[in-house]
């Protein structure tokens, strides 16, 4: 859904794991799922301290 976020003008956008579970995945083991969640949240924090001038999608490095 990141194109929608760009269209409406959200400035810092981090792609998540999916519409039905943005910060998780039932297919992963509990530990791997939490690691995925942590990675997305840390990427969001990284985005928060990055200056942007326009809607920006922060893809995984």
């Amino acid at each position: 859904m990141t194109p929608v976020a760009v269209m409406v003008g959200a400035n810092r956008i981090v792609p998540a794991a999916g519409i039905i579970h943005p910060l998780g995945s039932a297919d992963l083991s509990p530990d791997d799922e939490k690691a995925l969640r942590r990675r997305i949240v840390e990427q969001a924090l990284q985005a928060l301290r990055t200056e942007v001038a326009r809607p920006t999608v922060f893809t995984r490095e």
């Binding site: 039905i20 579970h21 943005p22 910060l23 998780g24 995945s25 039932a26 799922e33 939490k34 969640r37 942590r38 997305i40 949240v41």
Partner: peptide, 15 residues
């Protein structure tokens, strides 16, 4: 279904 199973999949309070 999946966020009801584990609300952290929506709101990451644990992390």
């Amino acid at each position: 279904t999946w966020v009801k199973q584990d609300p952290h999949r929506l709101v990451p309070v644990d992390v």
